[in-house]
Design a protein around this nucleic acid. Sequence first.
DNA 1: TCGCGATAGTTAGAAGCTATAACCACGCCA
DNA 2: TGGCGTGGTTATAGCTTCTAACTATCGCGA
Lengths: 214, 214
Amino acid sequence: MDAGGKSSRERYRAQVRAEIKQYAWEQLATTGVSALSLNAIAKHVGMSGPALYRYFASRDELLTDLIRDAYRSLADAVKASAESGGGVAEVAYAIREWALKDPQRYLLIYGTPIPGYHAPDDTTEISNEIMAVLLDVHATRPADDHATPFDAHLDDHRHWDGGHRAPSATLRRALTFWTRIHGVLSLEVAGHFAGMGFDPSLLFAAELDGLLAD
Amino acid sequence: MDAGGKSSRERYRAQVRAEIKQYAWEQLATTGVSALSLNAIAKHVGMSGPALYRYFASRDELLTDLIRDAYRSLADAVKASAESGGGVAEVAYAIREWALKDPQRYLLIYGTPIPGYHAPDDTTEISNEIMAVLLDVHATRPADDHATPFDAHLDDHRHWDGGHRAPSATLRRALTFWTRIHGVLSLEVAGHFAGMGFDPSLLFAAELDGLLAD
DNA sequence: TCGCGATAGTTAGAAGCTATAACCACGCCA
DNA sequence: TGGCGTGGTTATAGCTTCTAACTATCGCGA
C-alpha cells in the first residue's frame, strides 16, 4: 500500500504484512471472523506460529487493521460512486454491491461487535467521510416539504455533520437513507430472506423508490 | 420449562439444563457469543469441565438452544403485544424494547451468522410465527393505494405468508416494517449511532411515523 | 571490508479452549 | 438385591493465542 521509497527492510515488512492480510481476508470470507486463526495464516504464509507476532502484535490488532481497511474500502466505493456523477440511487447500489461482494467484510463493520473491543478513532473519521458523501448527494434534493419533529431534534444534535451546512431535512434524509439501506442489507446478508423466495434486490429497489419519492 | 410429571431424574436433568442456560445467558450478555466458554459455565454451575457434555453434546448445541430460546422470546413478546390490542406502533416498540433489553440476545439472531452453521428448522417456524403477527397488525390498514412493482413480484412469491390471505400491499408493508425496524435497531445496537449525539429512539419514532403514514 | 546492532525467524512452553476416553459411584427399578 | 443407566470424575489429545529465550541474517556505518 505505502510503496514510498523506504528502506528495503521496510518494503519487505510492508509486503509481508500485505500478504498476511490478504490471506486473512480469504480466511475471513470463507470461515468468518470467529474462526480467523493466526496460526493457520502463519502456516499458509510460510512462517511458523509466533513469527507472525513480529507483524501484528495480537489477533485484535490484525482485526483492527482489517476493520480499518473495510471501512476505507466502503468509503472509497461510496466516494467513487458520488464523484462519477452518481446520485442517491447510484450510491445506494454502490453500497449494496460492496456489501454483497464480500458479506463477511460487511459484517465485520455492521455485524455483531465484539464486546469490550473499541474501534480506533480513524474508523469513526472514515465513517464521517461516508456520512459527508451521503449529505452531499442528498443536498440536491428539495428541502421545502414537511419538517418532522425529528428534524428539530437533529438541529440541536448535528455536531456529527462535519460542518456540512445542510438543512436539517437533509440530515434526516441521509440518516434514513442509511438506516433503510442497512435494514435490507443486514437482513439479506445474514440470510434472513433465505427461505422466503422473493428477490431481495427488488425489495432493495422498492425501498430506494420510497427514499427517492419522499 | 417442561415441568410435566416426569421422573425425578428427568426433572433434575431439566433443572440443571436450565441452570446452565441461565448462566450462559449472563455470560453471553456480558462477553458476547465468541467468548462463551463451556468450561467457565461448568465451573460456575459447580461441575468440572466435561460433565457439561452430559447435558449439551457440544458448544454448538448449546448455542442452538439459546438461539431457539431467543427466537421464542421475541415471538412471545411480539404476540403478547398484538394480543393485548396492540397495533403496528405497539408491536414496533415491543420489538425495540426486546432488542434493547439484551442486545447480545438480539444479535444472536440478527447479528453476524456463523458460516457453516445452519439454524434448526423450528427457528424458521418461529420466524414465520412472527411474520404472521406482522401480517395481522398490518392487515387492518387500508390497501387501496398505489401498487408498487414490487407488489406484483410479491404476489408471485408469497409462499412464506403461511396461508395468510392478505393483499400483496399488506405483505409489502409488513416486510418494509421489518426491514426498517431492523435498519434502526441493528445500527443502534451495534453502537453505530454512538458518537452522533442524537437520540436513537426519536429516529425510531420518526421511522415508525413514516411507516404509519404510507 | 569489517563488525555491530536491529530485525526476522526459530523452538519451547504456559494457559485456555473444545471434546473424547476411561473410569467410578450413585440411584432407580425389576 | 442385583444390575444397568445416569451423572460425575480425571486424563488426554489437539487446537488456540501469546510470551520467552535463543539464533541467524541482513543492512548500515566506520
